[in-house]
């Protein structure tokens, strides 16, 4: 290599050296790629271990977090309490399914007549 003696030549030759360096730049050793990918897999597997915890947290978020869980518990408790100590002025829904009156009530509807009317 002949290094120029004036500034213009030296700048041009420096640019040529940069160009040579760029040509030699785009190489990457395979064994380094393997090392890097091995690291990546190790990190990925490390993160995969606490998957159950993340799933549990996701479920919590799905019901609105701790506030949502508290509301759900309170609503459930209220439902149980209402079931055991309903106000006296409310009809007992169990009667509709168990007493004979329910049968009479259904009979009074005379469904047969409606069916006949429809048939006509």
């Amino acid at each position: 290599m002949n290094w120029g003696t004036n500034m213009a030549d030296q700048d041009k030759e420096l640019d040529q050296l940069f160009a040579q360096a760029r040509e030699a730049r785009d190489v990457f050793p395979d064994h380094l790629a393997v090392r890097i990918e091995t690291d990546a897999e190790a990190i990925r597997l490390t993160r995969a271990v606490p998957a159950k915890r993340r799933t549990w947290r996701q479920r919590m978020r799905g019901i609105g977090g701790w506030q949502g869980l508290g509301g759900l518990v309170a609503a459930s408790a209220a439902g149980v309490w209402i079931g055991f100590s309903a106000p006296t002025f409310l009809p007992d829904p169990v009667v509709y399914f168990t007493s004979q009156e329910t049968t009479y009530l259904m009979a009074d509807l005379n469904l047969d007549e409606y069916y006949l009317e429809d048939a006509e």
Binding site: V27, F28, A33, E37, E41
Partner: peptide, 16 residues
């Protein structure tokens, strides 16, 4: 997000 395959792509892009 746990996608193992993209590690190779990223290594090929950014490693060099």
């Amino acid at each position: 997000d746990g996608d193992a395959a993209v590690a190779r792509l990223l290594t090929g892009r950014l490693g060099p």
